[in-house]
Design a protein around this nucleic acid. Sequence first.
DNA 1: CATGAATGAGTGTTCATTCAT
DNA 2: GATGAATGAACACTCATTCAT
Lengths: 222, 222, 222, 222
Amino acid sequence: MNINSLNEDIIRRDKSALPLDRKERDRRLRRADIMEAAERIFALKGYHKATIQDIAKAAQYATGTVYLYFEDKDELYFSLREEKIRDFLRIAREKIKPVEGAREKLETFVGISLLFFEKNRDFFLIFLSERSKVQAIKDAKLSRSAAMLHYREFVVELIKKGQEQRVVRGDFSPGQIADIFISIFMTAVFDWFKEGEKPSGSLTELSAFILDAFINGAGKRK
Amino acid sequence: MNINSLNEDIIRRDKSALPLDRKERDRRLRRADIMEAAERIFALKGYHKATIQDIAKAAQYATGTVYLYFEDKDELYFSLREEKIRDFLRIAREKIKPVEGAREKLETFVGISLLFFEKNRDFFLIFLSERSKVQAIKDAKLSRSAAMLHYREFVVELIKKGQEQRVVRGDFSPGQIADIFISIFMTAVFDWFKEGEKPSGSLTELSAFILDAFINGAGKRK
Amino acid sequence: MNINSLNEDIIRRDKSALPLDRKERDRRLRRADIMEAAERIFALKGYHKATIQDIAKAAQYATGTVYLYFEDKDELYFSLREEKIRDFLRIAREKIKPVEGAREKLETFVGISLLFFEKNRDFFLIFLSERSKVQAIKDAKLSRSAAMLHYREFVVELIKKGQEQRVVRGDFSPGQIADIFISIFMTAVFDWFKEGEKPSGSLTELSAFILDAFINGAGKRK
Amino acid sequence: MNINSLNEDIIRRDKSALPLDRKERDRRLRRADIMEAAERIFALKGYHKATIQDIAKAAQYATGTVYLYFEDKDELYFSLREEKIRDFLRIAREKIKPVEGAREKLETFVGISLLFFEKNRDFFLIFLSERSKVQAIKDAKLSRSAAMLHYREFVVELIKKGQEQRVVRGDFSPGQIADIFISIFMTAVFDWFKEGEKPSGSLTELSAFILDAFINGAGKRK
DNA sequence: CATGAATGAGTGTTCATTCAT
DNA sequence: GATGAATGAACACTCATTCAT
């Protein structure tokens, strides 16, 4: 499977899947406008320094309008994360299902993820920052997201399949390996973004690097 | 080298290393008191929800006193990170210098780090959360810490040595490998903390797991 | 005169007294719908906590529709009071006019009032709360209502007649006595409502109590 | 007992009864400053239209300062009512205790109340408006005040004594009579305030009027 | 130096009112 | 006329920072 062939599915914004009445459609569009602005602002300033007024202004709406679509600031942030992750997982599932072979599934996953994050850089920053909001554990509303758990669970499943097919070592728990996979992946993407100016690495190269690092480790092969 | 033998150095609080006059000594003690309280509070509530009053109260000083030792809230947070990391690096350098062999150096590094984080759980949470404060990139004061860069640089050096001694593969840049090493390490420690109640894994086992995962990767050896 | 015979007049809703064209009739009906809802909501939540949206929803109209019939929130509240009081006074005048004797007129007035308030408990709460909105004196729009003054004036007339017929003492001004009468009356009704669960007092008994307290005072007769 | 002799006790502000350290004394003074300003503003604008900023400005403090002395707006309002009523009841109890005779006690009560309200006109408006905040029944924090109940209870006791001594009729419950007494009293004071410009009535005359109206009722004596 | 009361700018949220459809 | 989404001013409350004692 070719990375570029995944592209179009990720671009297509998933509003208006079903025929809706104009009202509901408009409502979704506005909601999406606000989420889009929120994504930018949250990524730029972080949760706490981003103000609802910032977001409203960025979305070209009045302050109060935000509250027509989201309960409060928390819910806006939360929904943003959740819906993006859900979108991503939906696409990932679709694309990965037909792929044969655990290793190929992992490759596809990495490819899709890279494309998704490239198209959604702001979201990546939010996603990333979320991963270590440890304090959040104690915070009711911002608590670890359901979709985030689904995301991990999805990777865990891929790893399990890898273990069954003897592509991934079996002496570590799938959860442990999944966590390591995710963290290697995130680290690589983050590095790649930071040095985004370099024309150096294509997504395909990056993809290969991540898988190599993950599968073979950092040790020198004798 | 035995992990347990590293213990005492990490426990010893590094205030008042040199003979100082009473005034300066007292000053440092108070500063340290405040940082200690700040560490607890920041770890517990996170940067934004922790208030200076919380911290002052926890340190049993008045609010204003905090400002005699730290420019502002940011600087307190910043100093906390910096000094802790510096402490850690000093110890790590001392212990690792006499160790022969790149692989053994890495092992020692992992061992020391684990002990240090175990003794400084609160700090670990801060350190971890810091790693992905990506927004910080754009934020003047909270910007990526000098000590954090030293930390990374230190690991980069270890990796370079590993590459020279053909313990670590040479086809990736030392920086990339260092980042991966750090992220695997952090992930493992975080997982271990979360399940801290389990009498399951000793630090030694965890140490072995981390190195194994890093060196050998997740792939099944044929 | 029998209290129960007053009943029907009070029940009958006084919309559409004159033959009107459909448009004007509809307009009045809608206006009445909204006032009815407002009455419920204002009584339930009080002026400030009641929102126009609450009221519109309760009346099953859109928010904006309220503004087609009332200038603003104040005017809605104001009109509510005014029209209800006017309704009441119209009925009261009709019923009291044919009654001979000042004392009997007062009795009739108490009876009618009790029935009216019983049928319009929500309004009673509004009416009552209004009586001491002293701040209102300084507030332009919520200022003491014209109908409220008519209400008082009506009682003043009854008292004057009472003084002429030597039923009511003449050494106090009619206004003073009217105010006292009104406050005794309100207090008694309020108490009666609060303990409304008690099967204790019928309206007739309450009516007798009020008149007794008013006419004879609280002093022990020798 | 002479009304004027009660005067000084009512004027004397009851701060600093006991010797306190400077800190606690200052604290109370500032608290009192704020309550005084709040009294004025609440009386002028009513609870909802009064803003904390208004009050802070009137007290010549910053907004935040108010929150050093009161939990929130509700608590400020609540404390105001409670403490004033408590002050009043304390004075009233002291003065009334030595008085012999139920009728004389009532007279004294009326006299003290008049003086107190005259010295605290703003508070009277608050006290009055409070009496009919019927909605408040449903509102947690603004709910009927404990001190208000004490106030009523105090009057109920006076009435009971009146019934025992055959000064007050025994065929109504003390509670009912107390409520009537209070409402006559409030009405009279309110009327008197409204026409405050008139040099007409002295407090002594007003006092006599209230008692007369209460004891003898409005009926013409044959 | 230490204190902690005071400050006041800043923010999330509400809601009366408007106006395009 | 009816609608109800959009508006944005307003307000309670927080908290980093200052400074008189």
